[in-house]
């Protein structure tokens, strides 16, 4: 009975989504040749725009780096307030709720709000990345704090180590690899997500994607796309290398 109901709801949901006059299903048969033509116009890529592309990539990279940097600073503070083992539930519960709320707002929405608040350029991008990334990073850091084994810390305390010494030689060694891994992971996400920030005017290479596609310069858009693919693959390679190093 219950299972049958699930299938019925699922079927209804699909029918409801498809039963719309504005879907334009009639365009589908013509789509393949059009797509072919579109791709054809991307060939050969116009490499003459490499200067703009490099500039855009550099700006995207800077947005991701600064956004990650400020997110790390904010997360370090918030993580302490979100750690179950450090503060009472009256503190960590609301803080974690706040972080979950921050995470639930899509980056592109934050970026549009930031552009509205501070104008066009890389600054709203940096602010948006900082805000968005903190929602995840502070939670990860808090979990890293909560997962520190208590016994080694107690052992150092029993041996007379000071609080800072305990932090340095019992707590930090347990946390550091986790923190580093989470931060690198978040940086890679920031880099990927900041690629599209330019579409809403928040700086970076997204601006060129937007400009070239809108002005039908597909050969130039192709160059930008290739550059983005290279950047993402490179960041993935760096990330997986670091993963192996710090496990």
């Amino acid at each position: 009975m219950g299972r049958g109901l699930v299938w019925i709801v699922l079927a209804l949901a699909i029918l409801w989504s498809a039963a719309s006059a504005e879907m334009g299903l009639d365009k589908l048969p013509g789509a393949a040749p059009r797509l072919g033509e579109f791709l054809g116009r991307m060939m050969p890529p116009d490499l003459s725009v490499w200067r703009e592309v490099l500039q855009g990539l550099a700006e995207t990279l800077r947005i991701a780096i600064l956004g990650t940097f400020f997110a790390v600073l904010l997360s370090a503070g918030l993580a302490v307030l979100a750690a179950e083992t450090l503060v009472p539930a009256a503190v960590w519960r609301p803080v974690r709720g706040l972080l979950a709320m921050i995470r639930s707002i899509p980056l592109i929405l934050v970026a549009m709000l930031m552009v509205g608040a501070v104008g066009l350029g890389p600054l709203p991008g940096i602010l948006a990345i900082t805000f968005h990334a903190t929602g995840m990073l502070a939670k990860f850091y808090a979990e890293a704090i909560d997962n520190v084994a208590a016994a080694p810390v107690a052992a150092l305390e029993s041996a007379g180590a000071s609080r800072t010494q305990q932090l340095r030689w019992a707590i930090w060694p347990q946390m550091a690899p986790v923190i580093l891994r989470d931060t690198v992971f978040r940086f890679e996400l920031n880099l990927r997500e900041s690629l599209i920030l330019g579409v809403v005017g928040a700086g970076g290479i997204g601006l060129y994607v937007q400009t070239y596609v809108r002005s039908f310069q597909y050969d130039k858009a192709a160059t930008v796309t290739m550059a983005i693919v290279v950047l993402v693959l490179a960041s993935e390679a760096v990330n997986s290398a670091l993963h192996k190093r710090f496990s």
């Binding site: 016994a151 080694p152 029993s158 041996a159 550091a176």
Partner: peptide, 12 residues
């Protein structure tokens, strides 16, 4: 004190 579960810092 010698702890029952040794209480070592694993990554050091």
């Amino acid at each position: 004190f010698i702890f029952q579960e040794f209480a070592l810092v694993d990554r050091l």
